[in-house]
Design a protein around this nucleic acid. Sequence first.
DNA 1: CAGGATCCGTATTGATACTG
DNA 2: CAGTATCAATACGGATCCTG
Lengths: 119, 119
Amino acid sequence: MTGALDPDMFAGCADVDPPFRVGDKWTAKVLVCLRDGPRRFSELGVPLRPITPKVLTGTLRAMERDGFVRRTDHGGMPPRVEYALTDLGRTLLTPLAAACAWSREHLGELLAARDAASA
Amino acid sequence: MTGALDPDMFAGCADVDPPFRVGDKWTAKVLVCLRDGPRRFSELGVPLRPITPKVLTGTLRAMERDGFVRRTDHGGMPPRVEYALTDLGRTLLTPLAAACAWSREHLGELLAARDAASA
DNA sequence: CAGGATCCGTATTGATACTG
DNA sequence: CAGTATCAATACGGATCCTG
């Protein structure tokens, strides 16, 4: 099972430019917020608070560029823009779930280790 | 299966301070390098090149603080220090493998999406 | 060998104010 | 509503030199 880990697996991956943004502060959270269907710009702002509009825009633009999200501008006034996961974006939910499972199982150990280290 | 994703799963997780360092530039790679057993400081420097000693030290210190790595100083001259994964660190290999699997399967799609976006 | 010290450039994130 | 513009703070990563 550790055999699934290729020592060279990062070779062509970590140095992609511009870099992946799944490890940044907000991308994974946006992914989760869009899991159950399209959301409007301001609908994303609520669960992601205190994110600022500028940062949310930047995050969504990067996700759009990478093909994780599709932006739909319905025009009109007031403006109405919806964001939805693409099929590719949806595939990211699987590794994300693995990370979340780890967190649920081991976060306490990590916190305990930190506590011991600070003593 | 998407039911495994809890909307609040990031609630107490992403705002831990100091932050998790698995998403930084080097931690995941160090994890892989230590997968097959203990390695010395300079042994890590080779596969991780062009990492600098300072950055490698910082990465290892953070991993040690979080309980992912155990540092063993064998003393003597010349110095000899070994780093090994702890049981907790080893558990991280599982979600990491999921991320690697995603990369192997979908990296091409991501690159294609970027290519289309830049056109 | 295994680092520590110092200096530095850049990317990321954020606060605030403003616009079509 | 859905952003953009501007400015500021900081954290991360890196280069270079030094030491027990």
